[in-house]
Design a protein around this nucleic acid. Sequence first.
DNA 1: CCTCCGTGTACGCTCTGCGTACCTACTGAC
DNA 2: GTCAGTAGGTACGCAGAGCGTACACGGAGG
Lengths: 261, 261
Amino acid sequence: MTAADGDRDHVQSLERGITVLLAFDAEHPNPTLAELAQLTGFSRPAVRRFLITLERMGYVRGAGGRWSLTPRVLAIGQHYTASHALIELAQPHLLHLAEQTQESASLATLDGDEVVYVARVPVRRIMSINVSVGTRVPAHATSMGRVLLAWAPTEQVDDVLARHPLAAPTPNTVTDVGVLRATLAEVHRQGWSVVSEELETGLLSASAPVRDRSGAVVAALASSTSTGRSTVEQLERDVVPLLVETADRITADLGGTARAS
Amino acid sequence: MTAADGDRDHVQSLERGITVLLAFDAEHPNPTLAELAQLTGFSRPAVRRFLITLERMGYVRGAGGRWSLTPRVLAIGQHYTASHALIELAQPHLLHLAEQTQESASLATLDGDEVVYVARVPVRRIMSINVSVGTRVPAHATSMGRVLLAWAPTEQVDDVLARHPLAAPTPNTVTDVGVLRATLAEVHRQGWSVVSEELETGLLSASAPVRDRSGAVVAALASSTSTGRSTVEQLERDVVPLLVETADRITADLGGTARAS
DNA sequence: CCTCCGTGTACGCTCTGCGTACCTACTGAC
DNA sequence: GTCAGTAGGTACGCAGAGCGTACACGGAGG
């Protein structure tokens, strides 16, 4: 159409259909057809076609002029989990870590400039937001993100640090690129990271890298607590060794070795 | 095309695109383009178009002739969670229940003849399969399924029980329709369900209903343990009251009351 | 009664999406 | 070195999938 759209190898209906699926959220849990049309910007008949297709596939349900997502939507995410052996493998180790520390244990991966939780054993509610598998947080402000960035390709790190301004969820968040680079070097050297109150006030967490058989860091293991129950010093002394050991064990399960790189 | 396909209001490209996305699984975590074409039955150029579209949306990544899912896929499932206030609301109660019982706590919903876990706090690994949010199990063989069916519309129950043969994962699984109906009536009457070793040998679980403000049962809360650590009698005596109380509290959070119906 | 909200349907046009066919790049056998 | 045999990319022309406009309909509220 408008020349700029001229994208070859782009399947319009697929993107539009997924856009419709994603239009369901906390603000619009049971939209009407007209509402969805407005939200997505597509015509009503178009949205209706997508909805009917999605309904046949079992992802949405229409009743009384209102539409809603079905739990089958959750199955889509399962395919990510299933296709990454690491996640299934890590589960028992996360449980063990959570039991030993009596704190929430998490496994996360880097996606762009964000950290994505891919497995989790919650113990207490510490964060204000409800962290679950799939939740994303800014990488530079978390111990998991620091670990993942510390071993990431240079260009990827540059890319993340180049974003301005870097989000600062708390007054403590380090956003100075120079300081961050130094921190990453330090994390790389010592093999773990502890971050205090940079993502959320009162939140404290430690993280260690998990490697695949090629030695590449593919995930970060973390244990999170609150400033009310622990301190940076306690974490470094008591939790970090356990964390590193657990991460190395997951690495070993993946067929890797815990060498530095 | 072949007349039989003549389905109006069906968007082919959307269904095909999602089919490509779902072709990634444990057996095919890093397929090649040709592999995906074979798996889905679509032509290579078609699959390529879908992949490129999905890649632009951030759901897949292609490298070295191999494709893989990105963690962004998990975000799709988040929309289900976000659009159901119940799930977010229930989280702290699940944590509390898990802490008090020192056993895994789960919240599930009915979808067709299966129960789908929609929230979960794992404590120990008891089941052989890795249960996570999105996991599906046959409804008739679980305490959660029994609870959900006990309050489901008659026709839905008929529909589930009409499936032959009903799956029998263990020798203990009740598959006799008459017995099941009697059990459902009993569950409805007493307000909870305990099931022993019908889904998996050694697995024991109790469940209670969660209602919305209209009084309809919308989810089942469960606590699971193993025959090695508890018995049906212990569960009924110690866990069921706690379970019912917790379920009622979630119901109250939803603005409902714990009346029978 | 009419109006305003909403959904469903018909229909013709266009451009999206289709697959065939062909080309290129790499790998390994011999 | 050649030559299959494998893979992925691309061009292209056709068909029909998917598009939006326009209209019918049904219920709620004035």
